[in-house]
Design a protein around this nucleic acid. Sequence first.
DNA 1: GTTGAGCGTT
Length: 458
Amino acid sequence: MDSDQGKLFIGGISWETSEEKLKEYFGHYGEVLETVVMRDKITGRPRGFGFVVFADPEVLDTVLQDKHTIDGRTVEAKRALSREEQQTSARSGNVNTSRNSGSGGAIRTKKIFVGGLPPNLTEDGFRQYFEAYGLVTDVVIMYDQNTQRPRGFGFISFDTEDAVDRVLQKTFHDLNGKQVEVKRALPKDANPGGLSRTGSGGAGSGGGGYGYGASGGNPSSYDSRMDSKMYMQPQSTAGGFPPYGSSGYGTPGYGYGPANNGVGYGGYGSYGGAGTGYGGPAAAAYGNPNAGYAGGPPGAPRSSWGAQAPSGYGTMGYGNAGPWGAGAGSGAGSGPTGQSPTGAAGYGSQGYGYGGYGGNDGSYGNAAGYGAVGGRSGGTPNNNVGSGGGELQGNGGGYMGSGYSDANGNPGYGNSWRSDPSQASGNYGTSQANGPHGGQVGYGGGYGGTQGRQAQQQ
DNA sequence: GTTGAGCGTT
């Protein structure tokens, strides 16, 4: 972590040792930017350790080789671990590795948290300094609600992530001789939890959903859409979304994603709700991704998620889930847990969503289109269906009816589908099972088919 | 006594 370059952890210090003392002592090795002695928040009693930050990280090499005795105690100096590393138990000696901060990182935001602000700093002064890095769209200095005293931190928003990256090139900035520390702003409101509810609840969230989908594969666009709501931040909060992260989302961006997803989904959900509206949010991506998923909720597929995740996710099923099969859907939405298991449900939903989607894209307008789709999907995945699908499409006509049956190939959607777990369609089937949406189900299937079609036509 | 703390409208 850049911010921790030049930072030493000093353990075992005397309770008598102050920041000043540390600074004086370590100042012999080089310029000390900051020292801190950690104290108990409540009692104020020193906790026996602190930190020293050198302007020049190379000084550490020397310091680390020496023994240090301060205030009569032999203290231990080590490279400071970043908070992230602390929690992840990444204990190797090299501190600067697993960090995604800064330019190279996948996570980007437009807002920066600025700590260590001098009390007398004005927003103007604050802004003027950062304007050197890009267009500043917002400046905030926080004050205590009661005392109106400056709280020592604030925020700077830029119009581009690039500007943020530039600022983050270094952790400490000198505002007229004062040192401030910059970090990416935390998600103010990114609570993984309530997502599905929230999202699905209001159709209004649709907008959010949109953004999401779009950004799905592409972290950068993310913020722009959700704006103030979500900020990704590399640190501890990430923990909040363990599942995702672990699953493969792997990249930080994704990990966070979940939170977002919640939102995004919501949006989708609304789509589904629309029922008619197939609208289409869904994306082309579906066809493939879903299939994979649906097919094998359990084991293998998982990995696939990872890869496809970006696109697929967004769209997928969450949204749908909401509307449709409440049960399943919500599960997925809620998230983390839902992942694999829910996946099943969710997927099914997805199918739906797609369907709708496809409808839009493709044909759209026609009901027929749907029908066709339905058939299609069925067909594609399954042998039998195949034929059916084709027909349907051609007809356009029987959207639901024909489509469905065909797709299933069998009367019993749910069952038949299930029989073919491996297939994407299978999932759809499942979703269909939900019932109300059965019609939609058809869609889902149709969707996939449609896509193929379109492609062919084109 | 050995790995931090501050995160939002003004």
